[in-house]
């Protein structure tokens, strides 16, 4: 209890006395994870919908692989992205390694399977209900996919939030490809890892509370948005 209490007061002090340093770390965390979430959603939602609707050879295998990739270890994703972006790697000339751009790439790859797999399931379930109606109205599979994505938008928000939560919480991938460079690629999770390394456990846990508060705030905002939309009956 004593340790947790100390961490709690460290968290409060961090927020009250928040300096530019903390805010820039928080802002970078949000920027990186939100950008990764937007990109992963832009790819993962249509991908999930098409896998749900389209029949193609190897579809079941694709579904199994997609579902399995939800459990990708962040460090492995980080390593793969590191090897790709390293100067000695195929994408080295881009000079992205140890930049926030590299962290966005890694987190995008990490959460893309989550968003795609969960939206595939949501869209597949809805397809059972909509199939005859949409076919009758003349929709092809691409049009049907777009319609279902729109009609399932509230359920799909859960898929997107799951992706964001994972992106914001992971440390392994961003540490490897970002390098935890002070003021450049240091985010909430890598700061927590660093403070833990320094043995400053209350500070680490305090940062953890701040991170949880941020994720909570994003989820609350999403829910508020959803409720506002639902009140309008959309």
């Amino acid at each position: 209890m004593g340790d947790l209490g100390q961490a709690g007061s460290a968290a409060i002090q961090l927020i009250l006395g928040a300096d530019v340093r903390l805010w820039s770390i928080v802002a970078l965390s949000l920027k990186v994870s939100l950008a990764a979430t937007v990109i992963a959603a832009a790819i993962g939602l249509p991908l999930g919908a098409l896998v749900a609707l389209k029949d193609f050879p190897g579809r079941n295998l694709a579904i199994v692989v997609l579902n399995a990739c939800m459990g990708l270890p962040p460090v492995v994703v980080g390593l793969v992205v590191y090897l790709l972006l390293s100067r000695a790697g195929p994408l080295g000339p881009l000079g992205l390694l140890f930049t926030p751009g590299a962290m966005i790439v890694a987190q995008t790859l990490l959460i893309l399977p989550i968003i795609a797999a969960v939206s595939r399931q949501i869209v597949a379930d809805a397809w059972g209900e909509y199939r005859e109606q949409l076919t009758s109205l003349g929709a092809g599979s691409v049009q049907a996919a777009a319609t279902l994505l729109y009609d399932c938008r509230f359920s799909l928000m859960t898929a997107i939030l799951a992706g964001f939560g994972r992106a914001a919480a992971e440390v392994g991938a961003v540490l490897v490809v970002g390098g935890n460079i002070d003021g450049v690629t240091r985010v909430m999770t890598t700061s927590i890892a660093l403070e833990t390394s320094k043995g400053d456990l209350p500070q680490a846990l305090g940062l953890g509370f701040v991170l949880m508060a941020i994720v909570l705030a994003v989820n609350a905002a999403a829910l508020a948005l959803r409720n506002a939309a639902a009140r309008q009956g959309a």
Binding site: E129, Y130, E132, Q133, L134, S136, L137, G138, T147, Y150, D151, R153, A234
Partner: peptide, 21 residues
């Protein structure tokens, strides 16, 4: 065209449902 026993209403306005097809 076909109208089903339990038609699926798309999650949008009545007008948008008619315009969909």
């Amino acid at each position: 065209a076909m109208v089903f026993q339990r038609p699926v209403m798309l999650r949008r306005s009545a007008l948008a449902n008619v315009a969909y097809g």
